[in-house]
Design a protein around this nucleic acid. Structure first.
Lengths: 236, 236
DNA sequence: CCACCTCATATTGTCAGACAATCTGACAAG
DNA sequence: CTTGTCAGATTGTCTGACAATATGAGGTGG
């Protein structure tokens, strides 16, 4: 992989190309995800199959399959004979997501030393992408969140485990759902970015464990985010 | 929960009662899961919708939804316009599952000291259940696997995080799929049980970190299982 | 003999329509 | 205040159908 095997017929080349022909179900699921993350669909909103089918111009079975996907991702909940609704992030679930985040991201931090160089570089790149957006000042609220969470996922990528990354992405989706419920988080993006930079500096310096190390730093960082999100949800 | 709150109107009593009325889709999914775990459906077997619908006496859309669930669980794979097949465990995926297991179960081990007493008791109970089945000698191969993996899940339960437990159960399901492909693992169940007992003894003694600690012990334990499973798969 | 093309068949992806079972809410009765 | 009843709405499931695509056999030409 990575090296073209000098195929005269070019049978395995162009593997990076793709047409947009995703299945209808996945397109519907993507559209629902987008609507949920952008706050168009508030938490608790019932997702009526007939209304969605007519609105999106697809059939009801297609909508049902897409809803099944959303439920499996934890972005919606299904109650028997009562249909599917947008999930409502409770304080307890935010706490649990953050606890799980710390386990996954902490494992990534521990793997910094033994991680592939390209993965370490990716952490720096996602951090740079976030800080640049913060400094630019013209990025949307959703865009900032996206880059912020991408940095945290890149930490999990240090483990080199696709499954852990997939789990982390699911957790981030749940956080995006929670963040979509609050109009704005009164958190200072500049402080956030500086905190991330401090974390990477600790990593580069090799100070992982013990007091003042990256692992403990990350714990504080995630706990701070946890209480901020929960407080913001309480205000609703 | 657990104690009846002496309610005159009994409004919140009877919460433990439930009828079995699971939906048709979930029953079909459960049946497919069982068939996969018991080896009736070999890895790579195409799951034809029409054949399954006729065989199970349900309609094709119902089968499709159940297959979507299986795919989301990682027990089957869907290729566009080619349908769904039972997933084939590759060596790389077994390695990844075990890496992820170590992160999750390791987090449980680290949480032993601060864990709820009932969760520590549950670890002892699942260990006892496994060792008893091993000593009894009359337990089926699948039953032994089930109790073995239940012990490992109970370690993750020490974290107190439902999401981490859910992730661990998904990983165990993938392992069960892999184990269903090999007729028998030539691993000595007595040695396995003794290894588990050694791990719990380290936990009870509070020896978590450092060389000879429970964390490192668990790493070895999982790595041993990893190489055994991969070797068994190679023989196929 | 092998590469290539064509075509019939099977399977999936998607749709339309229908029906019974169940939930919701309101209202009447004890 | 609880229970029974009923109309409307929604889901869960089934049947049937069609187009798009993959699969495999067979024929054709080099």
């Amino acid at each position: 992989m990575g090296v073209m095997p000098a195929a005269p017929t070019a049978r395995k080349a162009f593997t990076t190309l793709s047409v947009e022909h995703a299945s209808t179900v996945s397109r519907v699921a993507a559209e629902l995800r987008r609507a949920v993350f952008e706050g168009e669909l508030e938490s608790g909103t019932p997702l009526r199959e007939i209304a969605l089918a007519e609105s999106l111009g697809v059939s009801r079975p297609t909508v049902r399959e897409a809803l099944t996907v959303l439920v499996a991702e934890g972005l919606a909940t299904r109650e028997p004979n009562r249909g599917v609704s947008v999930a409502t992030p409770r304080a307890e679930s935010v706490r649990d997501v953050c606890r799980a985040r710390w386990v996954l991201e902490g494992a990534g931090v521990q793997a910094w030393a033994s991680a592939d160089a390209v993965r370490r570089q990716r952490v720096r790149a996602t951090l740079e992408s976030y800080t640049a957006a913060v400094r630019g000042g013209d990025a949307s609220y959703e865009d900032l969140n996206e880059r912020h969470l991408a940095f945290h996922v890149s930490l999990v990528e240090l483990t080199g485990s696709p499954r852990l990354v997939q789990m982390a992405e699911a957790l981030m989706d749940e956080l995006k759902l929670a963040l979509a419920q609050v109009d704005r988080l009164n958190r200072n993006a500049h402080d956030e970015a500086e905190s991330h930079e401090g974390l990477v500096e600790l990593l580069e310096a090799g100070r992982l464990n013990g007091p003042g190390g990256a692992h403990e730093f990350l714990r504080k960082h995630i706990e701070d985010a946890e209480v901020e999100i929960i407080e913001a949800l309480r205000l609703e």
